[in-house]
Amino acid sequence: MITTYLFFGFALLAVLGALGLIIFKHPMNGAMSFVVTLISLAGLYALLSAKLIFAIQLIVYAGAIMSLILFIIMFLNIQEKDLPLDPNRWFYLAGGIVVVAPIAGLLIKISKSLPATEVTVFEDGFGGVKEVGQLLFTQWLLPFEIVSILLLVALVGAVVLAGKRGVN
């Protein structure tokens, strides 16, 4: 029962954070409200007994990626006058809702047809570091190596792009 209340609390926070992201004018406010979404998603992963994903969501997403984004936003020192004018953002927003709403309705209809499993939190044996790690290093070894190469390439690319000298 408590998990249901927790789910609705986290879901409300996540949706409010996402709404704040697409409504706030300054990117700093948007980033702050996006952090709320990320942390409540971490809570939802905990409710789904995905303990490893919960920890990694908090450490990598809400910690590393968002602090990188916040650092860059502060680094660029964005003033109120640097922000792009969005004269017809509400128009585009309304158009986007008109296009997206039928697709969302269809997807919700599809996911209603799934079997109604009550979500209970598993004590152990599911979603912990040991179980996911065993799966990752046996069945998913090749994708894991490919992702590590991708991260290396992205690291080199970021250094080459951002560390360029003599560009005005």
């Binding site: 949706v15 996402a18 992201l21 990117p27 939802l44 792009p84 585009y92 927003l93 996911s111 979500v119």
Partner: peptide, 28 residues
């Protein structure tokens, strides 16, 4: 219910699409 989690996932994805469509700020 697992389907509630999927509803939330669909809603968040649609909000992401709306953000990409409607905003002109690169960060957003």
């Amino acid at each position: 219910m697992v389907s509630h989690y999927l509803f939330l996932s669909i809603i968040l994805f649609c909000l992401g699409i709306l953000g990409v469509v409607s905003r002109r700020n690169v960060f957003i």
